[in-house]
């Protein structure tokens, strides 16, 4: 019984959202507002229960770990973002956060640059490594703007443009597949779970 009612509500809200494809209407606006409200309403108690209680309230008030007051107060400074005069206080926790991001720089360099470079330096003993080598070099040449893209140099950069176009095409193809998949998911729900037409 509960499953039937929840499926019917979900089906109604799905159709409300789909109705936007015809034109904007109050049903779509209602479903959109409800989604935002429910998401926030769900997240707030979850964060309160899983973050505030175990990491702020319990250590400070039940276990007496007063050191926790320092990061807690630093977190509170974020609220001053909404004050025109005191918004500068919110920069302190942001600065602290930026420091943590800095910790990831060496590791990012390793994963995104050094390892990628190493794999581009393999012996050109098969077609794949040769293609990767040509693509890497020609695209890097394309983004070298100190020389005009003319003559022989221009021909090399044109190869780079072709590589990028193929990359964008692959990316777009995947995006189409993803969007169609989401639509398939909803229609599977409507036809299968609600109407029971898919076996």
């Amino acid at each position: 019984m509960f499953e039937t009612i929840s499926n019917l509500i979900a089906a109604f809200l799905t159709l409300c959202i789909f109705s936007f494809l015809y034109k904007d209407n109050p049903f779509y606006k209602f479903a959109e507002a409800l989604f935002i409200g429910v998401s926030m309403g769900y997240a707030i108690p979850l964060v309160y229960e899983n973050a505030f209680l175990p990491f702020v309230y319990q250590p400070i008030f039940l276990q007496g770990k007063l050191i926790i007051l320092i990061p807690s107060l630093m977190g509170v400074l974020y609220i001053f973002r909404f004050s025109r005069n005191l918004s500068w206080l919110s920069r302190y926790p942001i600065v602290f956060g930026m420091g943590i991001v800095g910790m990831g720089v060496p590791m990012s360099m390793h994963s995104s640059v050094l390892v990628q470079m190493r794999s581009a330096m393999l012996p050109l003993d098969n077609i794949n490594t040769a293609l990767i080598f040509i693509g890497t070099v020609t695209i890097l040449l394309y983004f070298f703007f100190s020389k005009e893209h003319k003559g022989v140099y221009g021909k090399f950069t044109n190869v780079g443009v072709w590589y990028m176009m193929i990359g964008f095409g692959a990316s777009f193809g995947y995006t189409v597949m993803a969007r169609i998949s989401l639509l398939i998911g909803r229609i599977q729900f409507l036809l299968g779970d609600v109407l029971g037409l898919i076996k």
């Binding site: 990628q116 794999s119 990316s171 995006t175 597949m177 993803a178």
Partner: peptide, 13 residues
């Protein structure tokens, strides 16, 4: 699928 193309370099390496 949207994220697939971005992750291929990590797969290849």
């Amino acid at each position: 699928a949207v994220m697939a193309a971005d992750n291929y370099p990590y797969l290849q390496t």
